[in-house]
């Protein structure tokens, strides 16, 4: 869980965003793009908070 929890969550959220952006316009696109951007958000957080 320690190793795989966050990567699995990021993968599921970003995959859902990437696919659901195909299904709608407007607000759906915006929400889907935000979900698809999860890798960027998590990588940025890790690079800022997990440097040691």
């Amino acid at each position: 869980m320690r190793t795989w929890g966050t990567p699995a969550a990021v993968g599921v959220i970003s995959a859902a965003g990437l696919v659901s952006a195909l299904l709608g316009d407007g607000v759906v696109d915006a929400l889907a793009t935000a979900a698809a951007a999860a890798p960027l958000a998590v990588a940025t957080w890790a690079l800022l908070a997990r440097r040691r």
Partner: peptide, 16 residues
């Protein structure tokens, strides 16, 4: 990824 990260917290970057 699993064996390499087994002892590290997710996202650890050992800059030192």
């Amino acid at each position: 990824y699993g064996p390499f990260m087994r002892k590290l917290d997710f996202g650890t970057v050992r800059t030192r």
